[in-house]
Write a protein that binds this DNA or RNA. Structure first.
Lengths: 187, 187
DNA sequence: TCGCACATGTAACGCGTTACATGATTAC
DNA sequence: GTAATCATGTAACGCGTTACATGTGCGA
């Protein structure tokens, strides 16, 4: 049943915040949602055209300034209705595919040192995500505190922080366990 | 670069544990890895044929008993080499797409009650996953303690437990925050 | 003037899900 | 006898990524 692409709703959602260009959407997603949602160009631009054709969004080419190719989109009434309809529906529980976990599950086939390296890299990646989230949280509490979106955005950041911290703790457990296997193998 | 399907490695990995039928793989995945990895029939069976054609796995039709259609596969030497090669490679950091989070991010557009319902459902789902993981952990410590896979399988379960608990705590935070918004709106 | 960020799009291609198709065996 | 489980497969279809294509404006 997960047939219909969610790209359209990601776009409608972003435009519910305010008018924006396709490029602007990419920027926002890269800086704010990348740890739980992202879109590629190949999805984004064609979907913008489709939504405009359906009348869910409108395009106002910025001819007023200096006629760059820039296209600014905004959400229409029917677009907002569609978005609200989707938001009211129960989120589908998606099938997960975590390669790191799949590898760990079969890692009895390789020496523990190999796995330890992977997890040290992973730990480092988690750390930089945590730093990034912390600075986004700071920024948010300064710039958006009055917005109706604020509590919701704050909750998503909270998710990122809590889950990443939990993953990091688990990472430490993994590294510790694997190191014990190594020393047991040596003795 | 994430072009090559990981289905083949999931299969090779399962066969590194022991000989198994396609159906058997489905069972194992459903019971042991579904919270971090799953395969659909449409991926599984064609990939089995491809791997057999490449000589990475072998098929021994169980003609000895009562000639059911059952096919038992086992991994070959070159298959094991391929698996180890993959395990040694750094896991790719995959792009995440979490619909629950995407909805939350835009939920200022709907009333908080709607979101609260979604999160109560989600919380319930997390709870049953936790129960399932706890019983799997019990089973594992009784049946597989001697296996070289044991520490690795235990770590994956630990992941499931820790992350699900963190998600549940966050869930409580979300529900609590949304309820405060509701009561503020009423006053 | 060179390279980067801005800015929009298209085409190819493989992946993965869903639904369909088929049939045997077992338990009630 | 009939429903559920065991068991294997195929075909259609859309989704999403990657790479390609193109061009502007700006700062070093």
């Amino acid at each position: 049943m997960s047939k219909t692409s969610k790209t359209q709703f990601a776009i409608l959602g972003l435009l519910s915040i305010g008018p924006m260009s396709g490029y602007g959407m990419r920027q926002v997603m890269q800086h704010s949602t990348s740890y739980f949602w992202s879109e590629s160009d190949g999805q984004l631009y064609p979907t913008l055209s489709k939504l405009a054709a359906k009348g869910l969004i409108e395009c106002k080419p910025k001819a007023d300034k200096n006629t760059r190719d820039k296209k600014e989109y905004s959400i229409t009434k029917s677009g907002l209705t569609e978005l609200k309809k989707w938001l009211a529906q129960k989120p589908e529980t998606q099938t997960v595919r975590n390669e790191l976990m799949l590898k760990l599950f079969f890692s009895a086939n390789v020496n523990p040192e190999t796995s330890i390296e992977h997890f040290q890299t992973y730990r480092y990646e988690l750390k930089s995500l945590l730093n990034q989230l912390a600075s986004t949280e700071q920024q948010l509490s300064h710039e958006e505190k009055q917005s109706s979106h604020y509590p919701y955005w704050k909750l998503t950041i909270e998710y990122g922080l809590l889950i990443s911290q939990a993953k990091m703790q688990w990472c430490d457990l993994v590294i510790d366990t694997l190191q014990k296997i190594t020393s047991r193998e040596l003795s």
